[in-house]
């Protein structure tokens, strides 16, 4: 069981949340000028990082708000969660572990 910190409600059980994949994907400024391949990359292709990655989450059964999280996809460790629009936290260095 994971405990996830909603930036609005505080620490809650994971079953109240849904993960929505990679965060900070910027919509292309000029969609008209993109090739089909570039558009396809934007729509469908994600990094799927093994290790620390920035993700979008929503607190569906709580306040219903979306937020971002920095999570380690291997250990499931949540480094931090932060509101949409806030600066993303730095990826921790694993040296010395």
């Amino acid at each position: 069981m994971l405990v996830i910190k909603c930036p609005f409600c505080g620490e809650r059980d994971q079953t109240e949340f849904t993960c929505h994949g990679e965060a900070h994907i910027a919509r292309p400024e000029n969609p008209d000028e993109l090739t089909d391949e570039q558009w396809g990359d934007y729509i469908f292709f994600r990094q799927n990082i093994k290790g620390y990655q920035y993700e979008r989450w929503s607190h569906d059964h709580g306040c219903g708000r979306w937020f971002n999280a920095l999570r380690n996809s291997v250990t499931d460790q949540f480094v931090d969660t932060y509101k949409i629009g806030e600066e993303k936290p730095a990826i921790p260095s694993d040296e010395g572990k």
Partner: peptide, 10 residues
């Protein structure tokens, strides 16, 4: 007050 789950209900 809060939104949460109880069993299968929101």
């Amino acid at each position: 007050c809060t939104g949460t789950r109880f069993a299968h209900a929101t």
